[in-house]
């Protein structure tokens, strides 16, 4: 079949698969949102429209606390992890081989290679010893544990991005008498942004899902949304959780919209 315009970016079937993928991603989400407005307790039978689960979630201090704590922890851990991962990616990519590189690579990816339960138990032993020694029981442990766990997820996309960048650009900047810092600030960093963004987003959602490690590291009053859910697993999971999930989705939409508006105005 002849097409009037030949697009070099078009690959047959890719658009269809992409659309199907998006549908697959959002179908369960739609179900979840719908049932958050269910009047009954069932997650499978529709008993009419109601806002009672939102009301219940708002009135439940524990649910409120754990949700906010999860968000705060995810933002903090993902931010720190992204910063550290960016530095590490700069130190290990496009620099030629150097002694110890493989070891660094292995270390960075190590949190990926051990199941959460094992890291959790090991961290429990380790962290509890520090807690006993120092008496400090704050959120620092969770931040450190989540950060460590997020680093590989942030590092790999940033590294992948860096590897596709052309050294010639920085060389050209150097030719034009830009200092290495200027070259980094005005050439490399802007080019890295998509990788950094991807890394941050991965780190963020990974931290939001980290449950077993949190369960073992948390001190009194440090439940997060996943550990709260884990505690419910043996009993019944109330539609309150659907309501919370829907609120998280709404929040994510606000963030995306805000981001879109900001980048658009800057683009003008």
């Amino acid at each position: 079949m002849a097409r009037s315009r030949f697009s070099i970016t078009r690959l047959p079937g890719f658009g269809l698969i992409a659309v199907l993928t998006f549908v697959m991603l959002y179908l369960p989400i739609i179900i979840l949102v719908v049932f958050s407005f269910n009047a009954g307790v069932s997650q499978s039978r529709w008993d009419g429209f109601s806002l009672q689960w939102y009301q219940a979630a708002f009135n439940n201090a524990q649910v409120r606390d754990v949700s906010l704590r999860s968000l705060w922890l995810a933002v903090t851990a993902a931010s720190i992890a992204t910063m550290l991962a960016t530095l590490a990616a700069l130190g290990t990519t496009r620099v030629g081989r150097f002694p110890g590189q493989t070891m660094i690579y292995a270390l960075i990816n190590q949190p990926l290679m051990v199941p959460e339960i094992v890291t959790g138990i090991a961290l429990l032993i380790f962290v509890a010893a520090i807690k006993v020694q120092t008496g400090y029981t704050g959120m620092g442990y969770l931040v450190a544990a989540h950060t460590a766990f997020c680093i590989p997820f942030a590092y790999l996309p940033i590294r992948a991005r860096l590897e596709t960048l052309d050294n010639a650009l920085e060389a050209a900047a150097a030719d034009l008498y830009a200092s290495p810092i200027q070259a980094f600030r005005y050439i490399t960093l802007p080019l890295m942004v998509p990788g950094i963004l991807a890394g941050f987003m991965l780190g963020f959602v990974i931290s939001l899902d980290t449950v077993v490690i949190t369960e073992f590291v948390k001190s009194a009053g440090q439940d997060t949304l996943p550990t709260y859910m884990l505690g419910q697993l043996r009993r019944t999971v109330t539609p309150e959780m659907n309501a919370i999930a829907t609120l998280f989705l709404a929040l994510s939409l606000i963030v995306v919209t805000a981001f879109f508006l900001i980048t658009r105005t800057r683009g003008r």
């Binding site: 959602v205 996943p226 998280f248 989705l249």
Partner: peptide
């Protein structure tokens, strides 16, 4: 962002939704 938005919900909640 659209790829990551579903992952703002908790893993268990998401898994239950797939079950549904």
């Amino acid at each position: 962002f659209l790829i990551t938005i579903p992952f703002w919900t908790n893993l268990l909640i998401r898994t239950f939704a797939i079950q549904e």
